[in-house]
Structures are given as structure tokens and as C-alpha cells.
Design a protein around this nucleic acid. Structure first.
Lengths: 177, 177
DNA sequence: GTTTGCATGTAAAATGTTACATGATTAC
DNA sequence: GTAATCATGTAACATTTTACATGCAAAC
């Protein structure tokens, strides 16, 4: 993608409301925002150090009851400013979707190529289960008007993801008949 | 994305039918397959050298009438095998879409946040013009049944792109009213 | 004549992935 | 007891971006 270090903004955004450990962030990347931008824990810990040396976040390390050492990171005023500036900045480049399945399909020229059907079928199953997963998440996260009102952006993009996935599944279906 | 050096496969795929120069590939990345996986010319030239040392492609350099030096790359049997193997391999991971606009939206919690409307409006214009562009491309590339039959994968994924973009635009529209 | 396009590359820096490394806790 | 989860990090490698660098041809 066109990258201006998205990771740093994601981390700052996630720290905006409450301090978190690297591990907390790691889990969020695996669930909540995994679809928006994946990151391995090694990269997260690195970026946290980086953000700290630049003064965008501060850290406090402590031993907990269970003898686990945790380092909590808190966003600073400077960090909040950077984040807000980023949010304000117009987003004028569209991302390229590096979809390996789509890429493979691109290279299949002949309409009667026997590989197509199998590929479509496999992708259908993947996409259909992703769609189901997203719909479940919507029910779980947004059952009340209040939840919608207070996480409106998330609500909107979850709807986009559902609509996108619905389109994908129906597109696959067209070529499976 | 989950990357297993997609670039090499894209290049091999593009060289499958005819030899091309690095510059030819560069242009294709800017137009035809820019949406599938962008690559800068510096990376393309590097990857071409890499593929050559591994024996997947061969090169011939010559001076042309206009005194321009060109290096044409041709795929080898070994290269064709690698490409075919890749096409055959099941694609079981879904890509994460690093959409900066969507990411920003995620972080806007309040339904009445004043930034939303402006963001949606700008994105609407971007997406609508992309949709128009894709529709134009479809007309230009696939006006006959024959063209469809002989570039079926491309035809399919162009339709997906159009449907996806239509969904995106209509989704934006929902929140603009 | 000046900008745009053709044509190819190198170097440095940033970003991302995979593997290595450790150690405690919790669930089965 | 052993596998999974919590928790944090480093090192090596691969990939990608940005900048530097050159030179000819064609269009305006």
C-alpha cells in the first residue's frame, strides 16, 4: 500500500482511550483490526520503542501479582496531536488490493480452463465463512442504538465489510452456475 | 499482505506469452494490473535480475534503431513451471485491505463527529471516478464475446472490481443522506 | 529549448516477515 | 505433564519506498 507508516497511527489510535501493553495491541491486531492492517508482535514491539523515543507515547513497566512483567504504553499530548493531524489529513489515494486469488484468476485466459471451477469453489467457501463471521460480529458489537452511536465509525466500516463480502460471494456465485 | 514474493509471479505471468522489457512491465504495473499489486520500477528491475540468476528468465540486450538500449526478458521452461505450480496451489489466506480511509473512520467514535461528512464526500468522489474508469475499461477491453472468451479471468476480475466499487459507492451514499 | 516519455539502473532507508529466544501461567 | 496463552524481546532476512543518477527521443 501507499504507506506513511500506518502502523504508528493505528497504535496511537488504539492507545487514545486507555493505556495498553504490546500484547494487548497484538491481540487487537489479530481480532478487531486484523482486517484493516495486520502486524506481527515483533513489529509492534519495535514500533512501540520507536514511538517512545519520539515522545509520542510513554511507558511504565511493572511486575504484576502473577509475576508477569508488563509494560503499559500511554499516549502523550504530542502523540494525540500527531494522531489528530493524521485523521484530519485528506486521504486521496486508493489502496491496491493484493488479492492473490484475484491475481491468479487474472492469468487464466481461457474461458474453459478447468482450474477455474475448483478455485471459485474454494474461494466461495472462504468468503462465505468470512461473511458469516462479520455478520456475527455485527450482532455482538452493535445490538443497541447506543453502541452504534458511540462507535459509529466502526459500525460504518463493519457494514462496508459485510456489503463488500456479500458482493464478493455473490460474484463468485455468478460464475459457479 | 501474506507475501510469498507475489511480484515474481506477476512478472512471470506477464512474461508468459511474450518477452518484455523492464519498462514494459513498469507500464503494465501502472495501468493493467496496478490494482492487483503495485511495484516501482526500481523493484521491478531488481526482481528481474533476481529471477534471471535463478534461471526463471533469460535476457537479451540490444541497441535499437533509435539508439535506445533495451533488455528483453524471456521466461524459461523452469520459470513456466514455477508459475504453473503457483497457479495450481490453493489460495487459502484472505488479504487484509489496508484502506487508510476506512482505518480513519474506524477511529471516529461519535456519530455526530463533524469530520465524517467531509471525509465521506471526498471518498465518494474518488470512488465514483474509479468506478467510472473501470466501467470504461470494461467497454474498451471486452466489447466482443471473443475478447471475453480469451481473457476470461481478466473479464471476471474486472467485473468483481466494478461490483466492489459499486458497493463502495452505494455504501458511501447511504451515509451521505 | 524545455518538458514529457522512453529506458535502465544503484543506494539508502523504511517496513514487514520469519525465526530465534526466554519464562511464567493456565487449562486440560 | 504438556499444550496453549500470556508476555516481551532480538536477529536475520525479505520486501518496498524514496532518492539519486544518467542519457536519448519526441512532442510542444
Amino acid at each position: 500500500m501507499a504507506q506513511k507508516n500506518m502502523l504508528q497511527y493505528i497504535i496511537l489510535g488504539l492507545l487514545e482511550n486507555e493505556k495498553k501493553t504490546g500484547y494487548d495491541l497484538k491481540r487487537l491486531f489479530e481480532t478487531e483490526i486484523g482486517e484493516l492492517g495486520a502486524a506481527k508482535h515483533s513489529q509492534i514491539y519495535l514500533e512501540l520503542k520507536h514511538l517512545e523515543t519520539q515522545g509520542y507515547i510513554t511507558s511504565e513497566t511493572a511486575l504484576y501479582i502473577n509475576k508477569l512483567e508488563k509494560t503499559y504504553y500511554t499516549i502523550t499530548e504530542k502523540g494525540k496531536e500527531l494522531f489528530t493531524e493524521w485523521l484530519k489529513l485528506p486521504t486521496d489515494t486508493l489502496p491496491s488490493i493484493k488479492d492473490e486469488f484475484v491475481l491468479k484468476l487474472y492469468f487464466i485466459r481461457n474461458k474453459d480452463d478447468e482450474r477455474i471451477h475448483d478455485m471459485l469453489l474454494k474461494q466461495y467457501s472462504l468468503r462465505a465463512s468470512k461473511l458469516a463471521h462479520l455478520q456475527e460480529r455485527k450482532v455482538q458489537l452493535f445490538s443497541s442504538e447506543e453502541e452504534i452511536r458511540n462507535n459509529y465509525g466502526h459500525f460504518m466500516i463493519l457494514n462496508l465489510a459485510i456489503e463488500r463480502e456479500t458482493t464478493y460471494v455473490s460474484w463468485l456465485g455468478q460464475y459457479l452456475n
